[in-house]
Amino acid sequence: MATNASLAKLFAPTGTLRASINLGNPILANADPATGAPFGVSIDLAKAFALRLGVPLELVVMDTAGKSVQAVNEERADFGFFAIDPVRGKEIAFTAPYVLIEGCYLVREESPLSTNEEVDQAGRRVAVGLGSAYDLFLTRELKHAEIVRAPSSPTTVATFVEQNLDVAAGVKQQLEADARQRGGLRLLPGHFMVIRQAMGVPKTRGEAAADALRAFVEEMKASGFVAEALARHGIEGAAVAPPG
């Protein structure tokens, strides 16, 4: 079994462990409005992993999932926090998920849509955040509706409103918050996907690194660390994933 010292060399060849953090998913990370410092479940996990390896931590902060993935693919970051997706999996070795999040649809109050199944029809236009898990998933799944990509996940509802689109797709909690703020909007019942949020490392780092990260995630779930982090940051609607 690889030692912490040997793993530290695999994960942090520069001597500092660089974690790619996506601020586009408020369930996992947010920025302090006063200081701009990132905080959240993903930051807590990154700190715990750096402590485990005995190396200093650097947060590589991005505003979208796509940029966060790119940072790891280009090895400008050593690992990151992403929704599992086969497109991303070509370059990144994922752990099992540590958190499960619902992906939902948002419409206007007066919309004729009442179910998720009604969305995929010709003439419907669906807003998604560019490069997000929803973008990747719906690009594969929607056969008739048109996808309109907002610059980022947090701007999805603004794009939906400004361009008079039919549906916005995203994290349930973000959509609920936007609906409360703007008014005149509602979520369709249920969800169109369950997002499996995991940690990931470039496949170029080898199986030992991937296995170590997988074991770390399982330990963090089993010990209650993930559940405690969700509670500490006041996150509702996200569930700790079952053992991998």
Rank of each mutant, 00 (worst) to 15 (best):
E91R: 11
Y134M: 15
P97H: 03
D120Q: 02
V128L: 11
Y105D: 09
G131I: 05
V128C: 09
G123P: 02
V119Y: 10
S132K: 14
E117F: 02
A127T: 05
P97N: 07
S114I: 01
R124A: 09
P97E: 05
T139D: 11
L142E: 07
V119E: 11
L106A: 10
S132G: 14
L106Y: 10
P86S: 07
T95S: 15
S114C: 02
V119M: 07
G129V: 08
E118Q: 15
V126F: 10
Q121K: 15
T139Y: 04
T139W: 07
Y98E: 01
E110R: 11
T95R: 00
E109I: 01
E141P: 03
L130C: 08
T95H: 00
K143D: 04
I92K: 05
E110V: 08
T115M: 04
E118R: 08
A122Y: 02
V119K: 09
L136I: 14
E102K: 14
K90A: 12
G89T: 00
L130P: 02
T115R: 10
F94L: 04
E91T: 15
R140V: 00
F94S: 08
A93E: 12
E117M: 06
F137Q: 09
P112K: 10
R140L: 10
R124S: 03
V87S: 11
P97W: 02
V119T: 12
P86Q: 08
E91Q: 11
R140F: 00
T95M: 05
G129C: 12
H144I: 01
Q121L: 08
L130K: 15
D135Y: 06
E118G: 10
S132A: 14
